[in-house]
Each structure stands twice: as structure tokens, then as C-alpha cells.
Amino acid sequence: MNRPQLLTRRKMLGSLAKLLALGAAASTVSACGGTMAGLTLDDLLQKHYLDMDDEQLAALVARLEAAILERWGKPVTMATTPAKPGVRLAMTLNLSACIGCGQCAQGCFEENNQARDPEIKWITMLRSHHMKIWNLHDTETYTLPPTGEDDGNYYLPVACQQCDDPPCVRACPVKATWKEPDGITVVDYSWCIGCRYCMAACPYDARKFNWAPPDIPANELNPKQHYLGNRPRPYGVVEKCTFCVQRTREGHDTACVTVCPVGARRCADMNDPTTEVYAIVRGVKTIQLREDVGTEPRFYYYFSDGTT
């Protein structure tokens, strides 16, 4: 009676060992899969952006900068500049001035290191003869710039509206996206799990997904970066407009404001009485998109003719 039991135990131990070996093999395979996708242990163990102290952040940024240097052969600087206290960023766009040339979308694309294929553009260009601001799906999306002559259309560039009550932040199951104190909604690209629920939640189609690994040519890579902004994104995560966090937090205008040939855009602290944004938000009749969904956008459209 005893002997067979011993035998059994030995055999069971043998089977257990085989199982363990199988498990080890399986994890090796998955580890290979990991290196294939360019994953490192550091990536897997990285903490949430808001949970890191200054020292950890500095180490992380150094690691990411080194990884970019290795991948693109180009030195970059990655800031983690926090929001300035009391600042509330907002954008204004003069629809009377906008000629729909789409240079804002292109400037944004170049500044923010967006993926080339499939191409990601944070600003969508819309045109319509009769603009229905609650009902944007009746408008026409276009990519080619118009001829410049008046073709009887309104032009409406749409990007993230930096909502006060952002449905995307509510949707995220892992708090990978949040509203910063200066009012911009950001994504920790290293925390996002890529479930894309925020994309379903956004009423402005402002969120874009990295379906493939980034493929930005080295000579086009913008080396002036922010962790929460234009650093090259990994594949499989969501991204969006950050009001050029890498520029605005250093006191510069956003790319779209800078490149607009007719000066239709402004982006500044809406709490600061010296800014034009302050004057427009308070003194001009403005329009917000899709007010029916209760998002409280911090993006104000207006018509300059007949209002000032």
C-alpha cells in the first residue's frame, strides 16, 4: 500500500516539475513577445505619473530620453513642468476670420510628433454652409485645404475642447487621463491600457489611438518635449490635444495659434485680465460646441463681425 503511494508521489512531483518547466517555457515565450514589442521590465513596473516624486520623475525622464536617443538617434529634452498655480487655460477661435486652410492641423501635427501612418491629426477640419453646432455630424470633414475663395461655407476646426467636466476622464477605468490644475486634460501614455472607452465617451472625436508603433522620421521629430505632451507615444495608447503643454507651460503660444495665417486663434489664461482670451470670453458673444452633452468646454468660438 505504502509503496505505490510513494511511487505516485514521486510521479506527481515529476508531473509538477514538468508543469513548472512548461510554465517557464510559456513565460519565456511571452518575454520574447515582450522584447519584440520593445518592452522592458522598467516599462512594466513604471508607476502612475501622479504617484511619482521628483526624484523618480527625473530618473524616468532620463530613461525615456535615452530610449528615444537609441531609437531615433537624436537627443531630446523631456520636461515635466507642472501647471502654474491659478492659471486656467482656454482657447478662442474667430470663425469670421478662419479661412479653413488647415495650417493649424498641420502645425499641430509637426509640433506634437503625431504618428504618420495611419496619420493622426488632433485638429479635424469641418465645413458647412449652415453650421449646426449641436449636430456636427451634418457637417463635412475635409483634409484638402479650400481654394481660398469664398465658397459659401463656414470653416470649423475642432480639437479637444478641454472640457470642465470631461466625459473621457470619467470613462477611463484606470485613471490614465485626468484634468490638470491649469484646465488641460492629459494622458499618461505609460499608464493607458488602450481600452478606448474615452474615445467612445468624447463628443468631439478629439481622442486618437496609436494603432501601430510610432513611425516619425528622425529629422521630423520635435526634440522639445513634455512627458504629458508631445513625447513619442508607444503603440496601443490614446492621445489628444494638450494645448501644446510643452510650449504653453514655458510661456509660448500653442503651435496652432502660432501658425494661423489670419490670427483667428488665441490660447491663454482666461483668469488673467491682461489677456485677449479674458476679454473675448467676458466681452464677446461666444459659442460652445455640443452644449447639449454638458461638457462645459473651455474652447470658445465667436464671430468678430457685428459683435465688437
Binding site: G34, A37, L39, D43, L44, H48, R170, A171, C172, P173, V174, K175, A176, W191, C192, I193, G194, C195, R196, Y197, F209, N210, P234, Y235, G236, V237, V238
Partner: peptide, 27 residues
């Protein structure tokens, strides 16, 4: 298989991750 970063699935599992309860319906 639908999520873009299955390697970060632990982000949904406290205490390793941050589950966005009670706000997110997905959580």
C-alpha cells in the same frame, strides 16, 4: 485582446493599479 496594452492589465488591479471606481462604468 481588444485593449491596446494587455501588458498593462495589472493597472486595473489594485493595489498595483488604480481602478477608477465608482466613476468609470468600465471599472
Amino acid at each position: 485582446v481588444d485593449i491596446g496594452r494587455p501588458d498593462r492589465a495589472l493597472h486595473m488591479v489594485p493595489p498595483f493599479g488604480k481602478l477608477n471606481v465608482p466613476v468609470s462604468m468600465l471599472s
